[in-house]
Amino acid sequence: MHPLTGDLPAGWLRRLAPHARPVYRRAGHRLTRQDTPAEQFWLLHSGTVVIDLHVPGRGDVVLEELGAGTTVGWSWLVAPYRWQFGAVVTDDIRALEFNAAGIRALIAENDELGRELSARFLSVVADRLRTARHRLVGLYAYPADTT
């Protein structure tokens, strides 16, 4: 079981299951690109993914590395449903890929499920933003060496 969903009631898991499919992605595969439509999310079972952010003049800056037991993607939950960060597979992954539109429909149908999933993904959002802030401060706290 995955930490994000492992303790959900069986009835909710049965409702989520039709919107998920197992996937395998090789290293180098880009799962998401910043500012493109966010149409899915992933629960990682193995492998690694890096989260990146395009910074003008610096290119794609790696913010965080995610491994087994983590969740990739939260932008699907917040309109206008566009990726806030990019994500690239760095070590082949096995994951469950969820269709975001289907999960949003379930959330709209069931207030209790919606509150629970929203709270769980809010934790993911907070972790990603905290890590991004620390990484960017580290990059820009000191001027680049120009010698």
Rank of each mutant, 00 (worst) to 15 (best):
A27H: 02
P143N: 14
P80Y: 05
R94D: 12
P80D: 08
P143F: 14
D91H: 13
V55M: 14
G47S: 14
L117F: 01
H29V: 10
L4C: 05
Y140D: 12
R94T: 14
E39I: 07
M1T: 07
R58Q: 15
T71R: 03
L113Q: 05
T5N: 04
Y81D: 06
V23T: 11
S118M: 10
P37H: 10
A27G: 14
E65Y: 02
R104F: 01
A132T: 13
R104H: 06
D92N: 12
T36V: 12
A141S: 15
A100V: 02
A141H: 14
V78Q: 10
L106G: 04
A108L: 12
W42G: 02
A119C: 00
H54S: 09
T131H: 06
R25E: 11
F41V: 04
L122E: 10
E116I: 12
H134P: 00
I93P: 00
A132D: 03
T32Q: 11
V62H: 11
I93K: 07
A87H: 03
Y24W: 09
H54L: 12
L77N: 03
R26T: 13
V62K: 11
H54I: 03
T71E: 05
T146C: 12
R130A: 14
Y24N: 09
L43C: 04
H54W: 07
L129P: 00
H134R: 15
I103A: 06
D52S: 15
R115P: 00
L43Y: 02
A132E: 01
T5C: 10
R25P: 02
Q40N: 09
G102T: 09
L66K: 14
I51S: 07
A87W: 01
H134D: 15
G102Y: 04
S46H: 12
S46G: 13
A100P: 02
T90C: 07
T71D: 01
N99Q: 13
I107G: 02
P56W: 09
D7I: 04
I51V: 15
Y140H: 15
P3A: 06
L122M: 10
L63H: 00
A100Q: 05
I51D: 04
G11C: 08
H19A: 09
V50M: 06
A10Y: 05
R26F: 09
H45Q: 14
A100K: 01
E112Y: 01
G114Q: 05
H2M: 03
L63P: 01
Y81K: 07
L66M: 15
R15S: 10
A95Q: 04
L43S: 00
E97N: 03
G86H: 00
V49P: 01
A132V: 05
H2C: 04
A119W: 01
